[in-house]
Structures are given as C-alpha cells and as structure tokens.
C-alpha cells in the first residue's frame, strides 16, 4: 500500500486533530478562567506551579503554587469531569502567597494555575501530569 506525500500529510493532520480536539472542546475550563479573570488578558510570568511529572495515584496528587504579591490563585484540572480544584484567597497576614495541597486527577492532563496579581493583572502557568491510576472511582 503506497501513500503519496499528500495522503500522508492529510492522515497525520487528521490524527493530530483527533488528539487535540478533546482538550480544545473543554469549554468549562475557558468559562472558569473567564469567570475568574473577568475576561482580562492573562500573562505568563508571575505564578509558579509545582506538580509531579508522573503521579502514580490520581487520588492524591501533591501540588503547590506560589505567586509573589498575588491576592488570589485559582487551580484548574483541565481533564477532570469538573475542572475546578480550589481557589486560594490570601489575606493581609499571609507571609508568602504560596500554598500546597493534594488534589484528584481523573487521568493524564494539564493542571492550570491562574493568579490574580497585586496590580490587578493575571498570570497563568500550566503543567502536564501523567496519571497512572485515575482518581475518580469507577
């Protein structure tokens, strides 16, 4: 079976699309981000998200976020049935705008952190976590 160059390109393109589409189709994530930022533009610098590259157990994935000077940080799991994870609001006595917790991940996916910085702008950071056993039961 011979493929011409054109056919090969078309096939690879189609295959790539099938992988990319499920993530793009997740409108709930975009909605959650828009709710948090109020539609403002989101920059890249200013928030750091620490998560393991490979998590064996999706039921407890340790993560930590820090964003110096931020007033709030929202964490989203793009591939979970409900993408919201937690929102940290820092008060005047918070010594550093950082926190750690443990979260559930349904499968291999991107974890996103969005920080609201002191000047009202927003920063975003994301990290892909590979999950061996999903954390949603069933």
């Amino acid at each position: 079976m011979d493929f011409t160059r054109r056919e090969t390109l078309a096939l690879t393109g189609a295959a790539a699309l099938t992988f990319v589409l499920p993530f793009r189709a997740n409108a709930a994530v975009d909605d959650a981000i828009a709710n948090f930022t109020g539609g403002a533009a989101v920059g890249d610098a200013g928030v750091e998200l620490t998560a393991p590259e490979i998590a064996e157990n999706g039921n407890t994935v340790p993560i930590s976020v820090s964003a110096p000077g931020a007033t709030a940080i929202m964490i989203l799991a793009a591939g979970n049935p409900t993408p919201g994870v937690a929102t940290f609001n820092f008060g005047p006595l918070a010594a550093s705008q950082s926190a750690s917790t443990r979260m559930r991940l349904a499968g291999t996916q991107d974890v996103i952190a969005i920080a609201k910085l002191a000047d009202g702008s927003f920063a975003r950071s994301s990290k892909t976590v590979k999950v061996t056993i999903g954390g949603c039961g069933g």
Binding site: A86, N89, T101, R102, R104
Partner: peptide, 19 residues
C-alpha cells in the same frame, strides 16, 4: 484573615493544606 480557600470536589480525601 490569613488565607481563605474555596474547595471543589477535586480536592483529595482528608484535605491537607500548607501555607
């Protein structure tokens, strides 16, 4: 206030926080 955290179902059993 030091910290105020809103949690969703994606937080693990026995929620743990460090700050």
């Amino acid at each position: 206030s030091v910290i105020d955290i809103t949690m969703e179902p994606a937080i693990s059993t026995n929620p743990y926080f460090e700050f």
